[in-house]
Design a binder for these strands. Structure first.
Lengths: 131, 131
DNA sequence: CTGTATCCGCTATGATACTG
DNA sequence: CAGTATCATAGCGGATACAG
């Protein structure tokens, strides 16, 4: 059932996306997580503060926003800057590395945005077929 | 808390990705679901049978594969062809619409594959910082 | 303002067994 | 082969309260 390993010296140069233990999947999950992709694409616009992100991303809770941002920061996609003012102020932006990624994500999300109507139509047909 | 609606006649032409009720998010979740993106990119290679997909995508269960494929089919991304042989044989492929999507997804996944090592490195640093 | 800590329900997922 | 049905469970994610 596990994937047949081609050799013993399989390295993490370019992981096999289809192997159960491929680290690429882990990273991909960060990027395509429920809120991850939204945060990434939004930060492509400009730098935002925590509360601004919370406001703009409808439906997200503080907990999930903080958690999502922390993961993206650990991965090196997002830069977190703390300004020791009173009250504190934290700004989030994309690193150059994160910008590369974000452009790819946006390439996907924008396509979905532009084609969502057609998808919803396809779903309607499906529902009628089964009815 | 909800996004300020620009007008009352907001339609689903081009949804607002950041609105909680935006249908784009639903479709995006289908596409970026745990197994969705893997299936989509794999089908970009060629047509596959159910069992072939199950074999190639390490770690997926039959249940999740069937479920993922059904959603992608309803969305109009995947074509399901049943050959009434004995035993039955079902082939899955991308529709032209699905191919458009798949190319966008692959554009993302391939970047992640090529940069996963750097991400893992960034994570290491993060862990050391906090230690 | 920017989070963290805790509780907790719900859903997504996996394992298993079964059907056409 | 290609699924479906059922059950069990982990953990996602929301609500709330609290802290620096």
């Amino acid at each position: 059932m596990p994937w047949p390993k081609s050799t013993k010296t399989v390295r993490i140069r370019k992981g096999n996306l289809y192997a159960a233990d491929c680290p690429t999947r882990i990273v991909l999950d960060d990027v395509t997580s429920r809120w991850g992709s939204l945060v990434i694409v939004l930060l492509l616009e400009q730098t935002y503060r925590f509360s601004e992100l919370a406001y703009r991303i409808g439906g997200i809770s503080e907990k999930m926003l903080a958690q999502t941002l922390r993961v993206l920061e650990e991965d090196g996609f997002v830069l977190r800057e703390v300004f020791p003012t009173k009250p504190p102020r934290v700004e989030y932006s994309l690193t150059p590395f994160g910008q590369e990624l974000a452009e790819r994500v946006q390439y996907l999300t924008s396509w979905v945005e532009n084609n969502v109507a057609k998808v919803m139509g396809n779903r309607e047909k499906s529902r009628q077929m089964s009815a």
